[in-house]
Write a protein that binds this DNA or RNA. Structure first.
Lengths: 243, 243
DNA sequence: TGAAGTTGTCTATTAACATAGACAACTTCG
DNA sequence: CGAAGTTGTCTATGTTAATAGACAACTTCA
């Protein structure tokens, strides 16, 4: 396959090969520790020059997914985080369950006003004052997702400062007397990471992301906050346990 | 932004611009019928040459997402299919609810044997005979997803032929006396389309896909079939209605 | 009508992508 | 050891991607 006989997709060939191999790792065709096929063999299966395969492998190696050993072969390194989507979903619990250290980090907290869309989600009027919190969440040192959270500025004054101190949405809500909350309807789609999120997630441009929109409610069904989260698709896998 | 000052991602710049605009359409910043900013303005916001913007717009136009009008501007065309993930999910009902014509098409049906993984999902023994059905599902003329379905060859003899005739999994199960069924645990992740699926979904290489793995059970909880589906992310949006 | 703003088309130049072939350096295994 | 198979590095060539500038063709609106 050369660039001129396939419809130009705007994606480099080496990138397609790298994605193919990564998929193989993701779905278990290549398990952690396994040896990948030789560069020549990969080149033949993708009908591509060996140098193109080498570039693909170099990209995967740089991301820590594989490791090349001269004279021997190239070996698989990594795994994905299982992320159950339940009504009671807590990032820290999910990550902790996998034996990893959950961390949160505030990027910025700013004042905002409700668009019609946000107002509807939060049960407020259009133009109502909001706090917008931009945060990143990690498992050990690996960024998992960035999320934008909107809360009513009247119900949660100084929410930005509280989050900066607690680094946890659950603790933030506790601070305002909310003992428990549930997740409402969740919208999931996929897309390509933009430049800003790519930098925050330490993700290469053009990588796929899982986009999750959800609104959390208290136990009486009153909306508390609405979130727009972007997950590095290569690092997580959502589990919808029935529905 | 030129290719040499950003870390080379293997994704062409015009493709990043196209993805950015598409995201703008997806999340409502540009609604159907809206006029996009001028090519010069887009070029400035992405810090890119106008020709690069033109290429991005040409790609979007070819996919029918936007339409350029000389001397006037470029306008938005399309929308996404809302796809609720409930325990009782029927493709035909979801598509029909949107006023579109649901269609199914058999790609191939072959005999297969259960891997350990498949056997566990279906409650069979490793090596048990299976029927593997590869099918594509469309809304009007637009391909929405391709799915690989495995069923027990003993419980559902000639399943391939039955599906080819009925073009519906629901009708296939009815044929074997299954009146109703429910979806069990569902795993969702995202990835990049491979060459085979790209052709089947009429999707450009490098586009993101939503990957859904699920097993359907009858009302007694007995596994009926397990599916591996790949959705064109740009054409659907999953709705998880609580959980 | 005329000016401003829009998309369409052309030429030209530089960097990145992909191919091809050859050989070195190293590991594994009989 | 020695052969086979692996990754690492080099040179070379043609194609694609992205830049830059200029101008034509068309629409909108004062």
């Amino acid at each position: 396959m050369s660039m001129q006989d396939t419809a130009s997709s705007g994606v480099a060939l080496w990138r397609l090969v790298a994605d193919g191999i990564e998929r193989g790792i993701a779905d278990g065709r290549f398990a952690a520790g396994d040896k990948l096929p030789g560069e020549m063999e990969i080149a033949e299966t993708y009908r591509v020059n060996r140098h193109t395969v080498r570039r693909a492998l170099a990209a995967l190696a740089e991301r820590g997914l594989v490791r090349a050993e001269r004279g021997s072969g190239t070996y698989v390194e990594a795994q994905k985080l299982a992320y159950p989507l339940r009504s009671r979903t807590r990032f820290s619990e999910i990550v902790g369950a996998g034996g990893r250290e959950p961390r949160g980090q505030l990027i910025e907290a700013t004042d905002d006003v409700a668009t019609r869309e946000l107002a509807r989600e939060l049960g407020l009027k259009t133009g109502a004052p909001l706090v917008r919190i931009e945060a990143i969440r990690l498992a050990d040192r690996t960024p998992i997702c960035v999320s934008t959270t909107w809360l009513s500025a009247e119900l949660f004054p100084n929410a930005g400062a509280v989050f900066a101190a607690t680094r946890s949405m659950t603790k933030l809500l506790e601070h305002y007397g909310v003992r428990d909350y549930r997740r409402g309807a969740t919208r999931i789609t996929a897309g390509i990471v933009d430049a800003t999120d790519a930098a925050r997630l330490d993700l290469a441009l053009g990588r796929p992301i899982l986009v999750v929109d959800a609104t959390d409610h208290d136990l009486d069904g009153k909306p508390l906050m609405t979130k727009h989260s972007r997950f590095a698709a290569e690092r997580v896998e959502f589990l919808v346990e029935n529905g």
